[in-house]
Structure formats: C-alpha cells, structure tokens
C-alpha cells in the first residue's frame, strides 16, 4: 500500500503550474471566449426565455429575478465544468498521450509535485472561468454588493474540489472514451440536483437528502448568497465539505497515479 503513502510536496509544483500557464497563454483569448460561450447561451436562453414567463422577485429565487438566480448557479456549474475538463481531457493528454509528466519526472520533480501543480492549475483555470461569468453578470447589473468579491476565493475552492476528483478519474481511465461516463453519470445529474437551475425545495424530499451530499450543492449554497449581497448561512460547513473533498480526492488520485505510472 506504499502507493497511498502521504504526499511529499515541494515548491517544484510551481514549475509544473507555470508550464501549463505558458501553454495556455498562447491561446488565452480563444480559450476564455470558448469557456464563456456555452454557459452564457444557457444563462441568457433560460434566464430570459424561461425567466420571462415568471413573475419578478419570487421568494423562491431569493427575492430577485430568475436570471439573477440562474447567473449565480451558472458561475458554480461553469467552475465545476472547467475544473473537470482540465483534469480529465487536458491532464490525460499530458499524462498519457504526450508523456509530459514522464518528461517532467526525468527532472528532479516527483509525481507528487506534478499532480499538485496540475491540481492548482485546473483550479486556477476554473477560477478564471467562473470569474469571467461573474464579471459578465456584474456588468449586467445582476450583482448588488461588494460582498460578491468573496465569491472569488469560494470559486477557487470550488475549482479545487472538482479538480481533485477529476484527477482520480484520469488516474483510472484507459482512454478518453471513459470520461463520457463521468460527465453523464456524475457531472450532468449533479448540475440538475444542486440548485443551479431551480431551488432545491422543488425536489422530492428523498432526492433533497441526496442533494445535500453533492459538492456542487455546497458550492451553490456558498456562492449564490454572496452574489445577492448576503452572508451564506453555514459557510464553514460548505467550506469544510469542499476542502475535505479536495484533500481526500487528491490523496486518492495521487495513490492511484503512483500505482499507474511508478510501478
């Protein structure tokens, strides 16, 4: 079981993070626009199309418009998607196809550092994705209070919480085809059950209990009030769930990847 020994981390992870940043910088503008397009289409389509059918200022939507409610959910879902894509497809390309990790480990960098760099890189990229939407939402006048700035560290934490499980899937995946299962069985259902599109109390009681165990539910519960200018109700619980998930999943992902690459 030595593969699951505690991580031995060092600052060499920074060089791994910088490598990914340098690649991203070459395609930064199309990458940001591409990341924005999909969530924006959903947000405007559903927000104005569906939201137009609803009365203004429903209590179920926190007393605001549906689009404001949906915008906060979209920030969270988009952060999750960006972190997942980066740690599945992009990290898998670096690990398996391009053998980038192998090359890095020929230098004085341990796999532990490579994975830590990947984790923080995916979280950073996810933060960019979430914050880009946050900026658009703010420009539309849907954010009322400077309390929304606290959403930025919460978005980063959400990025970490979804990057780490993504690394587990990558450690186990035989090929890209496998990732579809993660999205269709885990990410997509969670998006519908975490209060992104509609309030959780619309769900049957049994499913609401399941919702409370989903990490995206905690991200939404942490971030949405901040955009509405409110302090979240149980912030420490949500932070603990997201941070705990990030830590536990990173450890497992590291063990599985050590087994895969260092046997």
């Amino acid at each position: 079981m030595s593969h699951f020994a505690p991580p031995r981390l060092s600052l060499r992870a920074v060089a791994v993070w910088r490598r990914n940043f340098l690649v991203w910088r070459k395609i930064a503008i199309p990458s940001i626009l591409g990341n924005l397009a999909d969530p924006m289409i959903y947000m405007f389509g559903l927000g104005y199309g569906l939201g137009g059918l609803l009365p203004e200022a429903l209590p179920a939507f926190g007393g605001g418009s549906y689009i404001a409610f949906l915008a906060a959910g979209t920030v969270c879902a988009s952060t999750m998607n960006a972190a997942s894509f980066e740690t599945l497809y992009s990290a898998f390309a670096r690990m398996d196809v391009q053998k980038t990790w192998e090359a890095i480990m020929n230098g004085p960098v341990a796999l532990d550092d490579v994975m830590l760099g990947e984790l923080f890189w995916a979280a950073a990229k996810a933060t960019l994705s979430g914050v880009a939407i946050l900026i658009v939402v703010a420009l539309l006048g849907l954010v009322q209070s400077p309390l929304a700035l606290w959403a930025i560290p919460a978005i980063f934490l959400t990025g970490l919480a979804f990057a780490a499980p993504g690394l587990i899937v990558t450690a186990l995946a035989p090929s890209y085809d496998y990732f579809m299962y993660y999205f269709t069985l885990f990410v997509t259902p969670m998006t519908l059950l975490s209060g992104v599109f509609f309030p959780l109390d619309q769900l049957p009681a049994g499913i609401q209990a399941v919702s409370q165990m989903l990490p995206l539910t905690h991200a939404v519960a942490l971030i949405r009030p901040l955009l509405f200018g409110q302090v979240p109700e149980t912030p420490l619980l949500h932070i603990a769930v997201l941070a705990g998930l990030a830590l536990a999943c990173f450890w497992i992902a590291l063990g599985l990847t050590r087994r895969r690459l260092l046997s």
């Binding site: 910088r18 490598r19 340098l22 391009q98 192998e102 090359a103 020929n106 230098g107 004085p108």
Partner: peptide, 27 residues
C-alpha cells in the same frame, strides 16, 4: 540528464521553450 526511449518533447512549445521550461524543473 535523461534521454528516454520515446520522445516526450512538449509539442506546445518551440525548441528553445522546451529547454527553458525543462530547465525550470531544476529550479
């Protein structure tokens, strides 16, 4: 210094960038 059996140069970088990025792993 290691030359692996299969090339694992970084396809996203130029020749000089490959050396620069690799050197940073050595701090």
């Amino acid at each position: 210094g290691v030359v692996p059996q299969f090339d694992n140069l970084d396809p996203d970088f130029s020749a000089a960038e490959n050396l620069l990025v690799f050197g940073r792993y050595f701090a």
